[in-house]
Nucleic acid binder design. Structure first.
Lengths: 216, 216
DNA sequence: CCAGTTTTTGTCGCATAGGAAACAACCGCG
DNA sequence: CGCGGTTGTTTCCTATGCGACAAAAACTGG
C-alpha cells in the first residue's frame, strides 16, 4: 500500500493537529523542534498516513502544551435533545429517600455534566444515616432555607445557614442534617466525571453513585 | 533488549489498565473479547513491554467503556489544598462587571470542576449588554430572589421566578436581565471542561471565558 | 520568470507493536 | 499424583510506526 489512505480509525487526530498548527501559524519544523518528533513523521500523522503511537502523540501534545484530551476527545458533546431546559419551582421530578427529598431539575436534558438538585433535608442527627453519602466527583451545596449541620469525614461538622455554601470532594463521606425547626432546603449541584455518559438522572441515582431508594 | 523493561514513557498506562481490570475481576481473555485486542498484546501493554499505539489504546478504552481520559490523565486531581471549603453568606469574593455582581464561593479551593457564583443581576434590558455571554461548558442557574428574564440564542426569552432554574449549554449566547423591582439574585454554577486546570477563579475570569472587568 | 529559500512530502531502513500460537503457572478434582 | 481447564506470559513473525535524508512543492524577492 506504499502510501495510500489508511485506517482513519484514530478519528481525525491528524486533522485536529493540523488545524491546531495552522491556527498557530507554525511550521512542521517548528513543531518538530518543540516536540522532538521528526517533521516527516508529523507530516504523515497530520495526513493520517500512519496510526500514531500513544507515546508519540503524548510527546506532541506535551511539547505543544495542548491538553491531550482536546485532541483525543473532540466529542464536544452538546447534551441532548436541546441546549436549554427550564424547570419551574417545585415542578422538578421528585425522588425520596429516608433522609432527603430530592427534586431534580432539567431532567429533560440528558448527558449533562452537572446534576442539579433541590434537596429537602429530613434527617436531624447523623444517627439517622446508616452510612456516609459518597459518590465520585465534587459537590456544591448552597442553603436556601433553614439551617443545616454539614458533616464530613476528615473535618469538623459545620453549621450552614441560609446563603452559606460548601464545596467538597464528594468521594469523601458526607451527610446533611437539618438543625432548624422546619426541614432545611438547599440546592446541590453534583459533578460526576461520568455523569454525562448517562442518559438521565435516574440512571445517576440508580448507578449507586447516589443512594436513593424509591422515586415517586 | 529482547524483552526487558522499556520506556515507561507512556506513564503507567499499563498499570492503570491492569488496576482497572483487576477491580472488575476480568481476565485478559474477557478484555480481549470485548475489545478485539489480542490477549497477548494486552499482557504486554499491562506489563509495559510495548509502547501501545493510540489506536489500540482507544480500542481498549472504547470496548471497556472507560473514558479514555481516565487512563491517560491519572491526575485524579483532588482539588487543593483541602477537600472542602465553606463560604458564609455574603462573604465570598466579589467581582463586578457592568451588568452583574458576582460573588464567588469556595475560592480557597483551586482546581474545582465547577465554579459556583452568587450573582446579582443589574441589567434590565438586553440592550444593556454589548454582546451575548458565552463560555465553554454548561451552566445551571437557580433564581434566589426577584425575577429574571433569561435570554439565549435559539430560544425564546423566558421569565424565571424564585425557585425556577435553567440549565443550558453556555457556549450558546445568553444573558440575564432583572425584571423585578429590586435587582434579582441567583446562584449560577458553571462547568467548564478546562476549569479544573486553572489555579483559581480569577484565572477563570481572566481567561476570557467569562467576561468580567474589575475585581474589588 | 527564475534562482534561492522555506516548507512539506516521499523513500528507505530499522526497530518494534500486535496477532497467533505455543508455553508456563495455577488451579481444583477425581 | 496426574490431568483437563483456566489464566497469564513468551515466542515467532509480519506489518508498520518513526527518523534520516532526499525530492518535491510552495513561497520568496528581484
Amino acid at each position: 500500500m506504499s502510501q495510500s489512505k489508511r485506517q482513519s480509525s484514530d478519528n481525525a487526530i491528524g486533522a485536529r493537529l493540523r488545524e491546531w498548527r495552522s491556527e498557530k501559524g507554525m511550521t512542521l519544523a517548528a513543531v518538530s523542534a518543540r516536540t522532538g518528533v521528526a517533521s516527516s513523521t508529523l507530516s504523515k500523522i497530520e495526513n493520517e498516513l500512519v496510526s500514531v503511537s500513544y507515546y508519540t502523540l503524548k510527546r506532541i501534545c506535551d511539547g505543544l502544551d495542548i491538553p491531550i484530551e482536546e485532541i483525543i476527545n473532540p466529542d464536544h458533546k452538546t447534551f441532548a435533545p436541546g441546549r436549554r431546559a427550564v424547570t419551574r419551582a417545585n415542578e422538578g421530578t421528585v425522588f425520596r429517600c429516608s433522609q432527603y427529598v430530592y427534586e431534580t431539575h432539567s431532567t429533560e436534558l440528558s448527558r449533562k455534566e452537572m446534576i442539579p438538585l433541590i434537596m429537602t433535608v429530613l434527617a436531624r442527627t447523623p444517627d439517622d444515616f446508616e452510612d456516609w453519602n459518597r459518590h465520585d466527583g465534587e459537590e456544591f451545596i448552597l442553603v436556601l432555607d433553614g439551617e443545616i449541620d454539614f458533616y464530613s469525614e476528615f473535618y469538623a461538622p459545620v453549621k450552614l445557614k441560609r446563603g452559606d455554601s460548601v464545596y467538597f470532594d464528594s468521594s469523601m463521606g458526607h451527610m446533611c442534617c437539618s438543625s432548624s425547626e422546619e426541614p432545611a432546603k438547599m440546592v446541590s449541584v453534583c459533578y460526576d466525571p461520568r455523569a454525562h455518559q448517562q442518559q438521565d438522572v435516574s440512571e445517576f441515582f440508580s448507578s449507586g453513585r447516589l443512594t436513593v431508594v424509591r422515586a415517586e
